[in-house]
């Protein structure tokens, strides 16, 4: 999806209108686990300069995303493809002189985007696999049988019912489950 992701870059070229700013967005963010220290960012740019993804992406800039979030450009941030490019290497988090946990702020923004239904396919597949088998990938019968010939003990049997029960109160997973069923019907 983000192969030619330029949404942030282009979005930044657009003039910012005061009417599109959500002044309370940053206060919503600092109450969420992982982005508590967002307001400590002083835009030094350490995150972007040390980011390995920023080196190869035309548009992914963690500093820009943090700045947009603080300005209250909620829609632009949550709808931007580049949000999903972070590799979660945590270099920015470890080197931020202000202790902002930049990668966790990005994760919070992704979670909010996901709540609004923006979920890249790779994550949809993993959600459905976790609900079905407990594992993030569909491990084939062939693989499971091959373990024996490789001299490995059988893979412990998962308990998807128990996993589903633990996750049943999570609204995001419920949405994924319903979505999966609807997709299957179509």
């Amino acid at each position: 999806m983000a192969e030619n992701a330029v949404a942030v870059k282009d979005a930044m070229k657009e003039p910012i209108r005061a009417s599109e700013l959500d002044p309370k967005f940053k206060y919503q963010l600092i109450k969420l686990h992982g982005s508590e220290k967002l307001l400590k960012c002083f835009q030094c740019g350490t995150c972007t300069s040390d980011c390995p993804v920023a080196r190869y992406s035309d548009s992914y800039r963690p500093r820009t995303l943090i700045h947009m979030a603080r300005l209250g450009l909620k829609d632009r941030v949550l709808k931007s493809d580049t949000l999903w490019l972070c590799a979660a290497c945590f270099t920015c988090t470890d080197r931020c002189p202000q202790g902002v946990e930049v990668a966790s702020v990005i994760r919070v923004l992704r979670n909010l985007a996901a709540e609004e239904g923006i979920v890249p396919q790779v994550f949809k597949d993993q959600c459905s696999s976790v609900l079905q088998s407990g594992y993030a990938y569909k491990i084939s019968e062939l693989r499971l049988k091959k373990r024996d010939t490789l001299g490995l003990p059988p893979l412990p049997k998962g308990n998807p019912e128990s996993v589903q029960k633990s996750l049943k109160g999570v609204s995001f997973m419920k949405n994924m489950e319903n979505k999966g069923e609807n997709d299957a019907k179509q």
């Binding site: 994760r107 994550f123 959600c127 407990g134 412990p156 998962g158 996750l167 995001f172």
Partner: peptide, 25 residues
């Protein structure tokens, strides 16, 4: 380890709560 499931990490980007529950399980 019997009945283990995904550690949770792959789903953290879309749902932190799901990650916490999977890891805690």
């Amino acid at each position: 380890m019997p009945e283990f499931n995904c550690c949770g990490l792959p789903l953290d980007p879309v749902s932190h709560e799901t990650m916490l529950i999977l890891a805690a399980r």
